[in-house]
């Protein structure tokens, strides 16, 4: 499992609707949290270009900052799953994204969920963290 990994779901309005630090590093220092946000936020610029050049949802790694890599998965509704990580296993990341996509669709199907609003479901959170442990 990657020592650092930060997973964010960004709605199509560029608003983060779900954030999770899923790294195995003991306790992430607080100042890293904003650094991760900065990197992911900046990577949105690259995703914006890349997303329209390919049919694939999984864009692989789109951006890097020092030794941290940003991998992105874009859903059909242009919701972006962004993972900041330092591990190398692209296959694992791809499966992680695909499974999260399924979970996300389940959230989306909830008639009480307003698309584009924050995902607060604790069930979703535990599932995502479990997936992160499994694949990353």
């Amino acid at each position: 499992m990657a020592s650092t990994a930060c997973f964010v779901i960004v709605s199509k309005n560029d608003i983060p609707i779900y954030e999770a630090e899923v790294g195995s590093a003991p306790k992430q220092k607080e100042d890293l949290a904003y650094q991760h946000q900065f990197i992911l936020h900046a990577a949105l610029d690259v995703v914006q270009d890349l997303a329209w050049t390919t049919n694939a949802m999984f864009l692989k790694s789109v951006d890097r900052f020092n030794d941290l890599v940003v991998s992105v998965y874009v859903t059909a509704g242009h919701t972006r799953f962004m993972l900041l990580h330092d591990s190398r296993s692209e296959d694992g990341i791809k499966s992680f994204f695909q499974e999260v996509h399924e979970l996300y669709i389940k959230i989306f199907l909830n008639p009480l969920y307003l698309p584009g609003s924050r995902i607060t479901s604790s069930h979703f959170d535990t599932k995502v963290r479990a997936l992160a442990r499994k694949y990353l």
Binding site: D14, I15, P16, Y34, Q37, H41
Partner: peptide, 13 residues
């Protein structure tokens, strides 16, 4: 660039 609030940590920093 960070005028909108949603990226909270960035905003705070």
């Amino acid at each position: 660039v960070y005028k909108q609030k949603p990226w909270s940590y960035i905003n705070d920093h």
